[in-house]
Each structure stands twice: as C-alpha cells, then as structure tokens.
Design a protein around this nucleic acid. Structure first.
Lengths: 135, 135
DNA sequence: CTGAATCCGCAGGGATACTG
DNA sequence: CAGTATCCCTGCGGATTCAG
C-alpha cells in the first residue's frame, strides 16, 4: 500500500509534534476560517462561537509562533483593531486540511453508525452510561 | 480563497470531534504503519516504539470502534496471535493523512526556525524559563 | 475591542503490575 | 503474546476577572 513515491522523508514519528499542533480542533478551525481572508479578533470569536476567548488567543499565539499566521495591530484607531491572517506558509496548509475536513464530512455519519454498532455489540454497560437523560 | 468548490458540506464545526479523533498523534501513527499492511500487536509496538502499550490498545480500540481498523484473533495457535489491519474505510484515510504528514515533514524545520525566532523576539522570559538548570 | 492573568476541574496518557 | 487494571500526574481548556 504505497501511494506512489509519497513516502515521507524521515520517520513519521519525528513529525508527530507538528501533527498534534496542527491536527487539534481549534487550530484546524482557526486556519479554516482564516482561509476566507483576514479577520479581526471578535469577528473570529463570533464565527467560531463554540471557542472560548482564551483558546482563541492561545491558538492564535501558537499559530503566530509557528509562522502560519500574522498579526497586525491598529492601535491608532478607536476602537483598537487587531487583524489576523494566514501567511504564505499557513496558506499551504489549507489544501491538506481541507482534504481532511472533506473526508470527515463525508464519513461522519458512517463513523457514527459504526460506533453505535460497536457499542451495542460489545458494551451494553457503556450504552447505559451514555443514555442517562435526567439532568 | 476558495479551493474550487471544495467547500465542506455542513459547518466545519460539527466535524471537529472526528478531526480530533483522527488528527491526534497516536491515531495518525497507527494508521500510517497499518497502511503498509496488517500487523500483529507487538509488531506494531516495536515499530512505533515511543508508544505505551496502553495507548496502543486504546488507540486500536477507538479505531476499531470507528470502523477504520479490523481485528482478527488466532486463539487456536500458540502463542495466540492478534492481527490488525485497515478496513476499506480506514484505507480511504491514508491519502489525506499522507498529505498532512508530507506537509509536516516538508515544513518541520521551517516551523522550528520560526518558533525560535518568535521566542527570541518576544519572550526572553520564556527562554530563561526553559533554561532553568537549578533544581 | 483585544486581550492577559488566574483559578480549577477533568480527561489524556505514561509507568507499572497482573492475567489468560 | 496480548492485553486489562490501577495509580498518578500533567496539561487542556472552560469560566471569570482585570487591564490597555
């Protein structure tokens, strides 16, 4: 099962930290919404909605540190504005990330069904545990 | 910055759980080594090496639950053998995962340099903090 | 508006020991 | 060999508060 000559240089293990950083929930979401163009802080907050402002800040700092996102401050204006956007490097991440998102969207239902089937087949205990409706 | 008509159906937010599950360190590694073909338990353990046997088991269970990996027991043989392999669904994940790995491998050095530059420019404090030898 | 700082609960995940 | 069970600790991440 080789995919052409796409074998990754070096061991896949050494790039795990990057995958962890890049593959986590918030990072993916932030990069994807920034793929539409530069945004301001609270604009992003409103668009993601489920994110806390702490996680948004932390995520943006991390991405800025990695050189995937730039940050521009408009202090002279009132109210002060801060814009974020993808760098060239960050933009190269869009395609692979989109591919993953696409795959997820395609298979989310199938996977859900698989999980339910698995749970029903193996652990009735866990099923009950997840089915507590009161409260 | 639209990538053709690749816009993902439904909000990207709803597929976050899948991305989290699929994008995490161990899941990626396991799928990638299984992309070479079916493997036995300890065989995988030896190949990944940095993984604890607990995390290997947990990861495999999760992948099996999602229907990405199958599991086959050879109890009649001694010593007992258990084989794992990718399902058809699991195999469809290889390409996007490879793309991500490829990107990571390409940019790991650049990102590392960016991080060092960022740390040097902003937080001398953090640099000292990371270099505390006493204790 | 755009954060930084603090508190804190909880789950992820490592190490170790035990079982069939 | 192929796990399961237990302990335990770290860090993610939410809520809240304060500041420029």
């Amino acid at each position: 099962m080789k995919l052409g000559n796409m074998s990754v240089p070096g061991d896949c293990e050494q790039i795990s930290p990057i995958l962890s950083a890049v593959g986590n929930k918030w990072t993916v979401l932030v990069i994807l919404i920034l793929s539409e163009g530069p945004k301001r802080y609270n604009q992003m907050r409103r668009e993601i909605e489920s994110i806390s402002q702490r996680m948004l800040t932390v995520t943006l700092r991390g991405l800025e540190r990695d050189g995937l996102v730039w940050r521009r401050v408009r202090a002279e204006r009132n109210p002060p504005q801060v814009e974020y956007g993808l760098t060239d490097l960050g933009r190269t991440l869009i395609a692979p990330l989109f591919a993953l998102c696409h795959w997820s969207a395609l298979n989310v239902d199938l996977i859900g069904a698989n999980q339910r089937r698995y749970d029903a087949a193996t652990g009735a205990a866990e099923a009950e545990e997840a089915a507590l409706p009161p409260r």
